[in-house]
Write a protein that binds this DNA or RNA. Structure first.
Length: 189
DNA sequence: GTCCTGATGTGCT
DNA sequence: GCACATCAGGACA
């Protein structure tokens, strides 16, 4: 599995390097696995789209902690979003997981999402949290522990595309979204 | 396929 | 009060 050192690096490097890696979540004796195909970086109090732009709050507290921890927040009164905290303690930064290609536990994911179309299962940040049964109670979970982790995957043989981040109004000048070119589970073009 | 709307918790400018 | 790192469903075409 990926170590603390992997996450406690500059966020843009972590974001790009996460593409092709495999997210694993264990629920009882079921494993849910998926390959990360789309991410976005949110970096520090100076990033006008980052939750840390107003300083530390209850909601964003774990972003200020050590890297290699899940930051999950609730938005639009309805959806949860999965992020991985990056950089050493004190630097508020994280990578949003926006697109995942299902690998294992697909039947369970479909039940959790009440969805019978694989193409629509995990191609978006809200969908990913439903498919992997994640909510804010999992925020702060260590990704180098056992319940949730990220492993090496097939992270060669694809091209990385870059764009502005999705769904934000400020900070669109920063090209901090990265995705695997041509992958079907990227949330949008 | 496109466009529009409603769902509604959290933190704020 | 209002914006917000979203999504599903309906009205079209």
């Amino acid at each position: 599995m990926l170590s603390r050192e992997f996450y406690e690096r500059p966020t843009l490097d972590v974001a790009r390097d996460l593409l092709g890696k495999v997210f694993v979540r264990r629920i009882d004796n079921i494993s849910l696995k998926g390959r990360i195909v789309e991410v976005e970086a949110y970096i520090g109090e100076d990033d006008p789209a980052c939750h840390a732009r107003f300083g530390q709050t209850n909601r964003n507290r774990v972003m200020y902690g050590r890297g290699g921890v899940a930051y999950i927040y609730f938005i639009y009164g309805m959806y949860d979003m999965l992020n991985y905290v990056t950089e050493p303690e004190g630097n508020a930064a994280a990578v949003l997981i926006r697109g995942i290609e299902p690998v294992e536990g697909i039947e369970t994911m479909m039940q959790l999402r009440n969805c019978d179309n694989i193409a629509n299962l995990t191609n978006g940040p809200g969908k990913i949290c439903q498919a992997f049964s994640l909510d804010t109670s999992h925020s702060g979970t260590d990704l180098t522990g056992g319940e949730m982790l990220v492993t090496e995957g097939d992270d060669s043989g694809f091209e990385i595309a870059t764009s502005s981040r999705i769904g934000i109004k400020n900070g669109t000048d920063r090209q901090w979204r990265f995705y695997i070119k041509g992958n079907a589970f990227v949330s949008r073009l």
